[in-house]
Every structure is written in C-alpha cells, then in structure tokens.
Design a protein around this nucleic acid. Structure first.
Lengths: 246, 246
DNA sequence: CCCACCCGGATTGTCTACAATCCCTTTCAC
DNA sequence: GTGAAAGGGATTGTAGACAATCCGGGTGGG
C-alpha cells in the first residue's frame, strides 16, 4: 500500500508541517487534553486557509489525538481510563511481537539496527543531561517507535505510532503527580538484551518497562464512569475534566 | 477517546454514508484495486459537493484503502505482497489475543456473546445458501470483526477493522484463481470451541483459519519487487498492476 | 522515423464567501 | 428570584470559483 495521505511532488504542502507541529505539541503537553483547537486561530497562526487546517484536524481525529464534534469544533482528545488501559494492552502485544521479530533469527540485532538504537540512546541521555524535558519525553516515545522501524514491519510500525501517541495522551491525563521519573537505563537494558540475542530477556524487560509506565497512571479499575469524589472536591483540574466526561 | 471523526447531532452528514458505500464497494470488489476515484464523478454520483468527497477520500486514505497522490488523484489501493503478509501477520496477532480475551475467565463465552456469534453464523449460512457472493464475502469478514466487538476491547476492534479491510484488498490482488472457496464450517468450529471454553482449541482453529486464507494468496517470498513474468505476459490485469508498481 | 516541445483538456488544490449551528448573555414574564 | 425566549457573536459546515498541475496528443524539426 502506498504511503498516505497525499505525498507532494514539488514543494511539500504545509499540511505535513502543521500536522507534525500539532501532534508534537500534543505529545509535549503544550496542548493539554481538552484544549480547544479553533480552526480560524490555527489558520491565522500557521498562515494558511481554514480548509487546510480542517484537513489536518480530520487526520488527527482519525488518529484519535483530537476529537471533532459536529458544529462544536475540535479539541485535544481526553482518553478515558478504559481507553488508556486498552492502548497499553495493545502496545504490550505489538511491542512484544516486534521484539520477537528482532530476535527471530536466534542471533542478536543486525549491526545497523544496533547502531541506530545506540545512537538513539545517546540522544536520550544527552536530552536528559541537558534538562530538556520536552525532548526527553519525545525521544523516550520515539525509542519504542524505532524498535518497530528497525524491525522492518511497516504495519506494526504504523499501528504502534498511533498507539504511542495515544498513550502519551493517556499519560498526560492520568499520570500521578508524585510518580518517579522514568529511568533512562531501561531502554539501554532492552537494547543490550537485544544485542546479545536474548529475546526472552528483551521481551521481559520491555513488558516490565511498559507495565511500569502503566502503573504510574491512576487507571481506576471501576471503569469509565468511576469518579473519585475526593479529587473532584479537592479542586484537582484533571479530575474535574474526568467528572465532566462522566 | 471520543469517537471520531465528527458525529452529527441532527441529520447525519452524508459523509458517513458515502464512506460506507465506497468502503463496501472496495470490500465487495466492485471497485477493484487500482480503480481511479475521480472526485467530480463521485460528487455527481452521490449528489454532494467535491469538498465532501475529498473528506471521505482522505479518511479512506488514512485507512489505507485508498491511495492519494498529489495532483494526480485517488485510487483504490494496491497492496504489495509484503504489505499483505504484514497485514495477515498483524491480524493473527490481534485476533489471537482477542480470542484469549474471550476465554480469559476460564469459562466459555458469555451468553449474549455466544448468541450474537450464532446469529452471525446463521446469516453467513443463509447468504451462502442463497448464492449471494458479495454478502457472503462481507459477512465472512464481519465475523472476525464481531469477535473483537464481543470481546469489548475497542482499541483492538479499531485496529482489526482496518486490518480486515486491508486484507480484503490483499485477497483481491493476490488470490489464486483456482483457490478453493472458504468453508463455512471453520467459523462454526471456532465458535463451538469458544462456547465450551476451549481457549487453546479456539486459538488454534482461528490461526489455522487465518493461515489458510493467507495460503490461498500468491505472496511471493522474494519481496515487493518480484514480478511473475508469466503472469505479466499472460495479460493478467492484476499482475499488470503489480508490474506498474515495481 | 524519432524526439522534443507545446497546447488543451481533465482533474486536483485552494481559497473565500455565505449559510448553518451552537452557546452565552440579556430581557421579559410569572 | 427563577425560568424561558430571543438575540448576537463565535465558530463550523459547505459549495462554488478560480488557480495550479499533470498527462496525452499533435506538430515541427532534425
């Protein structure tokens, strides 16, 4: 299947740039869940007509990063707890299979794959050391995407791209305030296991890693409608958003 | 995450109807892979402006059912052999997990789930008996989607919806002419295994079923660029499309 | 005869104007 | 004071017009 959406032949259409900008802003939490995305404002900001903005918003909506409500406009999506759990579940399934693919031949990583992963780890470490939080968060997500890329399985890569972006949203909504920050060593240990061909080890590390990310989120087991009244009346803004949803 | 794209509040926008019509026509092979989809013609046919058609085509493109090429228009996607293999691989992974979910409690299917699946089997059998090939093909695909629906895992359902539609395209391109038709008993046996709580059995049957579907396709192991010259010069239209792609 | 260039038609890309919808505020009636 | 209705402003939805692009066919030159 050909890449979609439309690929420009000459100068790239601004849609791609705009799409990237908005998606990155969502991932970096500069556009938090629930943020109104007004077409006219975005059109002015990006210096294009509204039609282009609508196109980008439609694409973002299909990726579940944005919700479009007819006659009421677009906003950054607010995932429910259930959705968050399902997204992480799907991630575990897909990413485990990707790691299986990477070690399918019984050997370790191909040298170019290992190199790309190593370079990425270096970039992660540099961002962390420089205190660039947004870059750190983005690179952390991109590590998982890179696993799919080097696996060469494009369909898994596309599915995972969407899942990673959705899980970033879930993290923005549900992350507990006092959660410890992610350690950079986890990715490194996964790469090391892959390099020495330890597929089982890599899978275990990966699943633990994803499980730990998910554990940091307050995903109530009661389901979507459950409301923690203590948090509602404590004036917590995120819980207020949840109360509105319920 | 809220359902996307935009949901109408009053009368439904025609986009949903048009989207369904085109997607169904693709699934039924009334619109074969490679078919040009001209905006103006579709606009006239559906009695709407071009803007609406463009919206639908963009959505179909993001689902990989249609390819958009800038300044050249839209056409029904033509999957490569590699893509087809990856789609089936992803299907096996997702559908196996769905069946695992359905039998996760160690018991059989919930009664309402069993009922829905049984009713669907009846509809499949009726379509087959009446010789309605298009309905049979569609219902056969919907069986798999229904497994996801009754599992209650919406994210898997969405991923699978897309994969099923893409695999239909792959089947349209790669199916061997003399392939035996799918037997209706395979779905029944899967449902029976689910009903008696035989998760392992159900999974094996399902994977065998999917494997059999994939085996019917001539997916060359050489990769995307491989061209079967015999088929090219035999004047086979599908192979000609592939030659153009390579 | 072959190749390069040009033109015309078909189609896509984009923008803008106007209609439709929704929400919030104000006013009026009870 | 409360609730309902009306109005206005903000925003979205939609269509049509025009610009831009591409491809195929025809013509002219070597």
């Amino acid at each position: 299947m050909k890449p979609s959406p439309a690929r420009p032949r000459g100068a790239p259409a601004p849609e791609e740039r705009i799409h990237r900008s908005i998606a990155d802003a969502i991932a970096d939490r500069r556009l938090p869940p629930g943020t109104r995305l007004v077409e006219e404002q975005l059109a002015e900001l990006f210096g294009v007509s509204r039609a282009r903005i609508r196109k980008v918003l439609l694409m973002l909506a299909q990726s579940r990063l944005v919700t479009l409500e007819r006659n009421r406009g677009a906003m950054v999506a607010v995932p429910s707890a259930r959705e968050a759990r399902e997204v992480f579940h799907a991630r575990r399934l897909i990413e485990e299979e990707i790691v299986r693919l990477l070690t399918a031949e019984g050997g370790g990583l191909a040298p170019d794959a290992a190199q790309r992963l190593r370079r990425h780890l270096d970039r992660e470490a540099a961002a962390l050391a420089s205190g660039d939080r947004a870059a750190t968060v983005r690179l952390t997500g991109e590590f998982h995407q890179l696993l799919a890329t080097v696996s060469g399985h494009a369909v898994f890569g596309e599915i995972l791209d969407s899942l990673i972006r959705q899980s970033s949203l879930a993290i923005a909504v549900f992350e507990t305030p006092a959660a410890p920050s992610c350690t950079a060593d986890e990715h490194r240990m996964i790469v090391e296991a892959l390099e020495r061909g330890d597929g089982d080890g890599a899978r275990r590390l990966l699943l633990d890693h994803l499980h730990e990310i998910e554990q940091r989120l307050e995903l109530k087991t009661l389901g979507d409608g459950a409301v923690d009244l203590r948090r509602v009346f404590a004036g917590d803004a995120a819980a207020e958003a949840l109360a509105e949803e319920a």
